[in-house]
Amino acid sequence: MITAASGRAARLRAFLEVEAKAVGFDAIGITRPNSIPRAPERLQVFLSDGHHGSMDWMETRRNERADPQALWGDVRSVIMLGMNYGPDSDPRAVHAQKDRAAISVYAQNRDYHDVVKGKLKTLAGKFASRAGADVKVFVDTAPVMEKPLAEQAGLGWQGKHTNLVSRQFGSWLFLGSIFTTVELPADDAVADHCGRCNACQTACPTNAFPAPYRLDARRCISYLTIENKGPIPPEFRPAIGNRIYGCDDCLAACPWNKFAQVAAEAKFAARDDLRAPRMAELLALDDAAFRTLFSGSPVKRIGRDRFLRNVLIAAGNSGDATLIPACEALLADPNPLVRGAAVWALSQLMAGAAFAGLAQRHENEADADVRAEWRAVLPVFEDA
């Protein structure tokens, strides 16, 4: 029997679907706040194994991440929304261009947090007005386990690469959520359709997946180039190749991408200057030029120094001797993180005698970490 309450909830659901599409969302689903009961256990295993690396906020706010009602006790429904950011070409193609740098698809234009959050606020405002209800909006900067919730809301399933996979959009969905005090009809969860496929795992350059559906962030290039604030561990540097911000390999390898459409949202179309920028130009960026180039982009959040650390690692992997002068100039950079990465880059690009001579000219380096970079590579050339 259809009650007045259930009829109203169904009308609100229909309203949400129409308005979500009008605002620019490509997928919508609804779930209950208690629909992910295994989340606390899985999160605790992830944290206990240390797979979160230096992302301490995952530990300090683990209770809120694992339980939406711990984040907001009044929530009765979670509206999950997805926005397609599918690229117009295979993002892995740039890896063959050794003088170019690879920036993750999601960061080649405006910061998606700003785009998605703006649309969430618009939709939430319309819904709150229609429903007479309280709402809160969240993008992934908040402690919300969006991917498990999106799975329960029917948007897709968490693949073996731990990201959401959609039958309609492959691995290319930005997620956001609206928490509300209204009880809305919930959708059915989506079954896992990965089957025997492990393409995402075998595609990972640094073997960051200890098992299917498990990620060790400490080995992930996205973590190493974005979240990691210190030097990139030497054992991962060669595998990073020319990836200077994030990594799309596991996402791009997913066979479900063949059903994905190119993103309709113009704000997610890659900027021409960020599709495959020249390393030589990036190495010359001072702070002001860095901020100008990446204005509005998520890349700006890591700052010029960490960004140049990444570019220098890519330069070292390029085999391009024309980059030597730009790398050598950065041995005098004020930031030791940049100087240390420059040491490694030059050790890969220069012949032994030339590099040894360069080292002598910098024997007065005062920073302990940079001196350690010199010591780590000099023995190889001294024996040459």
Rank of each mutant, 00 (worst) to 15 (best):
S297G: 07
L293F: 02
I36S: 14
K21Y: 04
I30Q: 04
D140L: 05
F46P: 07
H113P: 03
I302W: 03
A368D: 04
I324T: 13
R92Y: 03
R237P: 03
R278G: 09
H161S: 04
W157M: 05
T202C: 00
A10C: 03
K98D: 02
N335W: 02
L331A: 02
R301M: 02
G170H: 03
L12K: 06
T180Q: 10
I226Q: 04
S166P: 05
A186T: 07
A329I: 08
S295Y: 10
K147T: 14
L283S: 12
K300L: 10
V18R: 15
D320A: 15
G125T: 14
Q168C: 01
T202Q: 09
S54G: 10
A359C: 09
F179A: 02
N228W: 15
L215K: 07
F290V: 15
A314F: 09
A10T: 11
A351Y: 00
S318N: 03
A10G: 00
S171I: 10
G170K: 09
L43S: 09
L331D: 04
G340Y: 09
P298Q: 07
D272Y: 00
K121T: 12
C194Y: 01
I302V: 15
F179K: 02
D273V: 10
L274E: 06
Q168Y: 01
A269L: 11
K160H: 08
W72C: 05
F25P: 05
R219L: 09
V105R: 14
W256A: 12
R62V: 15
K267W: 00
R301Q: 15
R275L: 15
G246E: 04
A359F: 01
A191V: 13
A208T: 12
L378T: 01
Y112W: 07
H95C: 09
A22D: 07
T3A: 07
A288D: 14
G50E: 12
S318G: 01
D188L: 13
E227D: 14
T292Y: 01
N257A: 05
